[in-house]
């Protein structure tokens, strides 16, 4: 589904990713762990198409297409979803209006019929239940006056609604209490499907207790330096990044 080869990315003139390679197949969950400043969020942003991230070398193929030539909205319509580390508050843009516009824009881009407000509302109600989010959130501005936990749950709610092919969760667990963490994990697990893949970026192994990854990668200094199963995450938790096993290094 996703094939990243030798990716080099500069941000504000500084090279952050230095030859990152990663392959993610449909149905898989990949966890990416690594110390601060390793380039984890850069990876998420560059896959979603954020401005200011300059790809200097390498390639990213998503379902056989060159992802890097697409605009952010084209990537979204193709099925790429980034759950933001810091979901932005947008006062004055109604959450429901925004979600319907986003969903219909994606559907339109894919040549599917757009949903009318009744169909949309039915879908929203279904998805809200999973995340245990109150209806009231829909009537506010996008993320406006949401608590930290609500913002993160809202990201997962959006993911559930938009049904992407590849979801990248950028430290979705940061700032969550244990209950919110469980709800977020339940939301993600409910979305796991043979046709869908996840890249879960996290600092902590505890998220991976709830979302069991197929593979764990260690990202350091702009490259994947180790890959393995869930036991790698457990080892990191116990020993820190200094203890990355040499034999597992890529």
């Amino acid at each position: 589904m996703l094939k990243i080869e030798n990716l080099h990315v500069r941000v504000a003139g500084k090279e952050i990713l230095k030859g990152l390679s990663l392959q993610v197949n449909a149905g898989e969950v990949h966890a990416i762990m690594g110390p601060n400043g390793a380039g984890k969020s850069t990876l998420g942003n560059v896959l979603a198409g954020r401005e200011g991230y300059e790809v200097t070398a390498g390639s990213v193929l998503f379902e056989g297409r060159d992802l890097l030539v697409l605009e952010p909205e084209e990537r979204a319509a193709a099925g790429v979803f980034l759950a933001f580390q810091y979901p932005v508050e947008i006062a004055g843009v109604n959450n429901t209006y925004f979600l319907r516009a986003a969903l219909n824009a994606q559907r339109k881009a894919r040549g599917e019929t757009e949903l009318d407000s009744m169909q949309f509302l039915k879908l929203v109600r279904e998805k809200l239940k999973v995340l245990e989010l109150p209806d009231a959130l829909l009537h506010r501005g996008v993320n406006e006056s949401f608590s930290g936990g609500e913002k993160k749950r809202n990201e997962i709610f959006q993911m559930a609604l938009l049904e992407p092919r590849l979801a990248i969760l950028d430290e979705t667990d940061s700032g969550l209490d244990i209950d919110a963490l469980r709800q977020v994990a339940a939301g993600v697990n409910a979305q796991r499907a043979p046709s869908r893949a996840f890249i879960v970026i996290t600092h902590y192994q505890r998220l991976l207790d709830h979302i069991r990854p197929d593979q764990v990668h260690v990202l350091a200094e702009g490259r994947i330096i180790a890959s393995g199963g869930v036991e790698l995450a457990e080892k990191l938790e116990a020993e820190g990044y200094a203890g990355v096993p040499q034999e597992a290094q890529a």
Binding site: A48, A76, F81, L82, P87, A101, A102, L162
Partner: peptide, 10 residues
Amino acid sequence: FYLRARGLPE
């Protein structure tokens, strides 16, 4: 970027 990343054209 947030709005575009959700699929809204620029």
